[in-house]
Design a binder for these strands. Structure first.
Lengths: 190, 190
DNA sequence: GTCTATAGGACGATAGAC
DNA sequence: GTCTATCGTCCTATAGAC
């Protein structure tokens, strides 16, 4: 599942795991490199041996999310276009949610400005979905319909957001997300 | 619309306006007091004359959002309970969306950790909605149904989130949100 | 690979003159 | 009500010993 597997790179994976956790909990600016290093039982300097800096950690986290998205895209390519493709693709995306993806979504919720900054650089997960929407919806679809389509893909994210105040287990979140995706892709009114 | 209107407090309102803008754009930690002061054409120290500190600014921003929510609550009290109350209340909330509320939602998206911290202190907007959900849904409603109900109220927020990658005007966002609220409160399956 | 030590800057906040 | 000057703390990042 990891990209490169040269010996001794488990430390890198551990750093990424802890960094993702702290960036999600306190935000990118709120969690310092010192915090991450101490949570790992090492010093800042040791961490700088593994990563060039804070930005490099974020970039590595983003890179590790790309594969799942490419899977969705190539699946869509095998389907024939039509009005049911939206619901099929969105449901497929929602139902293939992994714990890692949930963590990535929590990270995104905790770091809106940083995700926007990355989007401006072109490397953002959210901008990847522009291609999906363009491939599924007819070219002349109105903006509000495009937004609704995106919300169908985003329903896990929305359910997680809702669960911030109403604590819920991952299964209950996914159940709500699945129901929302179906509701948002109901045929008929748009 | 403001709470106290003593002479000379327009400066306070201006500070709040600029602070909300910068906190949304860069995040709470990403926008310094110096940034806010310079955007206002004054120095840090002058800003400290009007507000005790960064936290006090956030608190004032939250306080100014309370009235709209109280309106919703008292309206709900005038309605008789029933399965249609959820849709009615959520639609009322969505359709009463003001530009100020949209800015507050953008702020919330940009500051997840801070909103969570405020929620732990009890002063959070999102925790206010627990009361709404409790008043509308039957006591024994399953968690996933509670999440769906909350998502219906959150649909403007979700549409704004979707619009981060697909630029859209406020009216198109609201149109998508209205459609989502209706879809999410459809009678029948739960 | 990990450490100590430190550079250099930005931050929130305060003191006190005007 | 606004300013200059400053304090102490925290930050990212680097240099260099082991």
């Amino acid at each position: 599942m990891t990209t490169t597997r040269r010996p001794g790179s488990e430390t890198r994976a551990e750093i990424l795991r802890v960094a993702l956790e702290l960036f999600t909990e306190r935000g990118f600016e709120g969690a310092s490199i010192r915090d991450i290093a101490e949570a790992l039982g090492m010093t800042k300097s040791s961490l700088y041996y593994h990563f060039d800096g804070k930005e490099a950690i974020i970039q590595a986290l983003l890179d590790s999310r790309r594969a799942e998205f490419d899977d969705l895209m190539s699946w869509i390519d095998t389907q024939e276009p039509g009005p049911e493709l939206l619901r099929g693709a969105a449901l497929r995306w929602v139902e293939s949610t992994t714990p890692q993806r949930i963590m990535a979504m929590r990270f995104a919720h905790a770091n809106g400005p940083m995700m926007a900054r990355l989007a401006a650089q072109g490397g953002n997960i959210r901008s990847w979905f522009d291609d999906v929407i363009n491939r599924i919806l007819p070219p002349g679809a109105p903006v509000s319909e495009r937004l609704l389509a995106r919300m169908a893909f985003d329903s896990v994210s929305a359910a997680l957001f809702a669960a911030q105040a109403q604590p819920a287990g991952d299964e209950e979140v996914l159940a709500a997300a699945r129901a929302a995706t179906i509701a948002l892709t109901a045929p008929g009114p748009a």
